[in-house]
């Protein structure tokens, strides 16, 4: 069954806050519901992806390769999103995203975004405004955690503490929850 505008607003309030219901309705027409099996990789580090995913059900694990080791960064839970950076750019992804369990996602491909942009520019503008707020909040959250490292004269000397501060900032940048 197709998702309603109200259900979208409840599931993804951050993506609905700077736009109106008629624009969300137009957005829903270009979103695809996809089932992802446990263990399936949605996004591969260092490869470009052209799709923005909104997680309706399930949980995603985010990892990155660090000196040949697979480093677990955290999870994306129901209501979370991933792929916002590379949906409209060709840049490579910074991390690998894999389903922890069977998931349901709403997918916005680059092709469908541009279709919306052409057919209903007001709706795509509203979506971009919400997405921009969303990214701006994440940059701010990550930067706040990094400020003590940049501005303070009293930076912790313990490498484990420094490493945790950096990992937390990275997790905030991508809206990640606890590690799987």
């Amino acid at each position: 069954m197709a998702m309603t505008v109200d259900a979208f607003c409840l599931s993804f309030p951050a993506l609905a806050r700077s736009t109106n219901k008629s624009h969300i309705s137009a957005l829903l027409e270009v979103l695809e519901t996809r089932q992802i099996s446990a263990g399936q990789t949605l996004i591969q580090e260092n490869q470009s992806s052209d799709t923005f995913y909104m997680l309706l059900e399930g949980s995603l694990n985010v990892t990155m390769n660090s000196d040949g080791q697979k480093l677990s960064l955290g999870t994306i839970d129901k209501g979370g999103c991933v792929g916002e950076i590379s949906m409209l750019d060709d840049a490579p992804e910074a991390a690998t995203v894999t389903a922890n369990k069977d998931c349901t996602v709403l997918a916005l491909s680059e092709e469908n975004f541009w279709k919306l942009d052409k057919q209903n520019p007001a709706a795509s503008t509203g979506f971009l405004r919400s997405l921009s707020h969303f990214m701006s909040d994440r940059i701010r959250a990550a930067t706040e955690l990094l400020l003590p490292l940049i501005e303070s004269t009293d930076v912790p000397a313990d490498s484990a503490v420094l490493s945790e501060m950096l990992t937390n900032a990275y997790a905030n940048l991508y809206g990640l929850g606890e590690k799987a």
């Binding site: 910074a94 490292l149 912790p156 990275y170 940048l173 991508y174």
Partner: peptide, 25 residues
């Protein structure tokens, strides 16, 4: 605006990743 923010997010991610490989504060 969204292109600038995507660029800023990618830059910040790269800065944090580089910082993770450094030894001193």
């Amino acid at each position: 605006v969204s292109r600038q923010l995507r660029h800023d997010m990618r830059n910040l991610a790269n800065q944090i990743r580089t910082a993770m490989t450094q030894d001193s504060s």
